[in-house]
Nucleic acid binder design. Structure first.
Length: 415
RNA sequence: GGGCAGGUACCGAAGUGGCCAAACGGGGCAGACUGUAAAUCUGCUGGCUUUCGCCUUCGAUGGUUCGAAUCCAUCCCUGCCCA
């Protein structure tokens, strides 16, 4: 069996290659191979930043290779110092195990798991690292690492310049390097991909493989996603955008992509969708307000990928209705909750209602929002913080609270 | 173990006895303008309170004082240098 498309070519064309180990990586990838990407289970959900490596896995699969998803159950107990100025808090083993399972599920929405030639496999490095003897491990891999060399790695240097690096974290790269070697032995894995910040860790693995097993391994990193305006990618008013619908409701997830800057449309389409590049370029070249339609495609495609087609359609339909002239906000994906008739009859303070709708974190924040003119009930602006909401504010059996132009929350009258 | 320098709000960073809920910058939120965009301009940005005021915050704990982020003691943590 041969590969169906050149992985390197595909990724490169999409701007998804930051660095690769050698010029010949393209030839190496002409034959089906096994590759892996690691994910740190530091939370029970990945966020949108992880979509880049997830897409890397998916493209691997589509190009005829076998992707391995390695959840860092062991390495998460250590904490990757790369790209961080401070040490992370340590997680308990139970937390890590639960997180690992949840993350596997999320990746499974985009990548097909299976036992066949291109079926992905989910592995946890705790399985081969957690119970290793410290002495045995040191004796096996220790001699092959030069501390001098390790000190030159960016991840270490960065930390030394900032707040210092503990011995705990210093070991992270050793463990990750060992992962690569282990996967080569157990699964014939010869490729590791990852975010750009993983370059050092990947290179250490390749060197370890050459030194201990005399195998030739390859590495490829994908670019860090940035925003055209230089801001942090993956953040919004509500904080991180997560892949879990529990943490980031689908409507919000959709809106996140719907609201990207014009200049980011093309790049995001090529990174986060499977659309052909011809189509991507065409969508990205739309000008003026026409590009809004491209953003709808972007938001729909990514939401479909992460939350499924039905949820994506729902979010899109609800968003379109909410922003149209008639402003229909009765869709299911619009954030909402029920409210008892008795509460409205008694009257509820606008501030309390804003907090309840999670449009403000505290009464003070809600007050500021009101005083700043950002709050509306249906279309009526509320600028009095002492305003009391009663049944009189109901329209068609619901109450619509708006904070700013885009954030909204609906209270349905409890039947 | 020794010496030195530090630990301030989301981040960076001023403040070194009362005028400090704490300058300034970034970030964030809101308003205006727009295309659910960018840029720009304006306001807000600890909590509770109907603008008075009260409470919590300047690594931690005690203390000095009418009064402390600011002074003292002890402790914890970080960086640099030495061993």
């Amino acid at each position: 069996m041969s590969v169906t498309a050149d992985l390197f070519q595909v990724l490169n064309e999409r701007g998804m290659v930051a660095q690769s180990t050698d010029e010949a990586i393209s030839e190496r990838l002409a034959k089906p191979c096994v590759g892996y990407i690691g994910f740190d289970p530091t939370a029970d959900s990945l966020h949108v930043g992880s979509l880049v490596p997830i897409m890397g896995l998916a493209w691997m699969q589509r190009c005829g290779h076998r992707p391995l998803v390695v959840v860092g159950g062991a390495t998460a107990l250590i904490g990757d110092p790369s790209g961080k100025s401070e040490m992370r808090k340590m997680l308990s083993r139970d937390d890590v195990a639960a997180n690992a399972a949840a993350i596997g599920d999320q990746i499974g929405r985009v990548v097909r798991f299976g036992d066949d030639a291109t079926g992905a496999a989910l592995l946890n490095n705790a399985d081969w690292l957690a119970d290793r003897s410290w002495i045995d491990f040191l004796r096996e891999v220790g001699p092959h690492f030069s501390v001098n060399r390790m000190l030159t790695m960016d991840s270490v240097k960065g930390r030394m310049e900032a707040s210092g690096i503990s011995f705990l974290e210093f070991n992270y790269m050793v463990m990750q390097a060992y992962d690569f070697l282990h996967l080569q032995r157990s699964h014939g894995c010869t490729l590791q991909m990852g975010g750009q910040d993983q370059w050092g860790n990947i290179v250490m693995g390749i060197e370890l493989g050459r030194r201990i097993a005399e195998v030739s391994l390859a590495g490829l990193t994908m670019p860090l996603v940035t925003k055209a305006d230089g801001g942090k990618f993956g953040k919004s008013e509500a904080g991180n955008i997560w892949l879990s619908a529990d943490r980031t409701p689908v409507y919000q997830f959709y809106q996140f992509w719907r609201n990207v800057a014009d200049a980011d449309v093309g790049r995001f389409l090529s990174f986060f969708t499977f659309l052909e590049m011809d189509q991507v370029n065409q969508l990205a070249s739309a000008e003026g307000r026409a590009i809004n339609e491209s953003k709808e495609v972007l938001a729909f495609e990514i939401t479909k990928l992460v939350h499924g087609e039905a949820a994506a359609q729902q979010a899109q339909a609800d968003a379109q209705k909410a922003f149209s002239a008639s402003a229909d906000v009765t869709g299911d994906s619009i954030p909402h909750a029920a409210i008892a008739a008795s509460e409205l009859e008694a009257g509820i303070g606008i501030l309390a209602l804003l907090v309840r709708a999670e449009l403000a974190k505290s009464n003070s924040e809600a007050r500021r929002l009101v005083q700043g003119g950002g709050v509306r009930i249906h279309d009526a602006r509320i600028d009095d913080p002492t305003h009391t909401v009663t049944t009189a504010a109901l329209q068609d059996g619901y109450l619509l609270l708006r904070a700013g132009k885009k954030r909204l929350y609906r209270f349905d009258l409890e039947a």
